[in-house]
Simulated scan of single mutants.
Amino acid sequence: MASVVPRFFDPRTEQGVLRLSIAGTLVMAAMAVGFGLYANSSLIIFDGIYGLIDVVMTWLSLLVARLIAQSTNTDTLQSRLNQRFSMGFWHLEPIVLGVSGTLMIGAALYAFVNAVDALTSGGRLIALGPAITFGVISLLAEGALAAFVLRANRRIGSDFVALDAKNWIIAASMSACYLLAFVGGAMVRGTPLDWIGPYIDPGILAVVCLFVMVAPLGTVRQALAGILLVAPQELRSHVDTVARDVVARHGFLDYRSYVAQVGRGEQIELFFVVRADDPPRALAEWDRLRDEIGDLLGEESPDRWLTIMFTTDLEWAV
């Protein structure tokens, strides 16, 4: 049994880190809802709901990561799954990232409206003792998990893990904000500033929601670019440079390139227009030229979908 746990929660793999994150998020979300209800704090309850949404999206990220890993494994290329999804699963990655970011923004917007309503209705009294206790626990736990996931992703380099690390940083920042607010509320009790107390919980919730709504915008924008197959400028420039060099060295007439970055997957299609009177070449020679072009484009990777075609008819390349 001891040998199974390290494989399931292996911090050296994308799936292992995401599993660890799911477990940590579930524990923190359950604690947040419990403490939030006990302390009558909508801020802490929102922290728990935010965590539960994060669990669902991290689970989806884990599922997509497994599908991508299986689809790029040559041992499973003839599996039933790969026969039904012969183009791979890269397209699911930006969809999950986009839905995740959109859900986070939507939840924060809803909580922000409730916070504004509470502010305009006289605020909300909360039990500061339990609120401060949970603030300390969550800040320490979320900060530790954020540092762990960031360190693990330096080696893994996964967009899913990067988004998960960003979510942990956001969660830790939220905890720090409401911990300071709750401590401040405790300090002003019995003083002329005691009237501020009911406004602390909804006020900080409104500020936190604004921060949460802004943080995922970059991820959503990147995911939308992947869904719409927007060609990254750097990848497009590199492919065009290689293609122009091949055209010049081999005396071809022209080329057409089509590139897209879909999640972690690079999709590259190159069509070279060859002269109609070009001397015939053996198929093995064309294959060697494809290998040469592939090496020039970069190191071969299971996450690269590369198609190289040669034709004498420009219409086949358009």
Rank of each mutant, 00 (worst) to 15 (best):
S3I: 00
P6D: 00
P6N: 05
E14I: 13
L20F: 08
T25H: 02
T25R: 06
G34M: 12
F35V: 11
G36F: 05
V56S: 04
A65F: 06
L67N: 07
T72Y: 12
D75N: 13
D75H: 14
I95C: 07
S100P: 04
M104L: 12
V113E: 10
V113S: 13
N114K: 10
A115Y: 11
I126K: 14
I126H: 14
G129P: 04
P130H: 14
A141N: 03
A147V: 02
G157A: 08
L163R: 11
A165H: 10
K166S: 14
I170T: 13
I170D: 05
A172F: 03
A176H: 03
A176W: 00
T191L: 08
P192H: 07
D194E: 15
W195Q: 10
W195G: 06
P198G: 14
P198A: 13
I204D: 09
V207Y: 11
L210D: 07
M213N: 04
V214L: 13
A215R: 04
L217Y: 12
L217W: 13
L217E: 05
A223N: 05
A225D: 03
L228C: 05
V230E: 08
E234P: 00
E234N: 09
E234A: 14
R236C: 10
G265H: 14
E269M: 09
F272H: 00
R281K: 07
A284Y: 00
E285R: 12
R288Q: 10
I293V: 15
I308N: 01
F310T: 03
F310Y: 11
D313Q: 01
W316E: 12
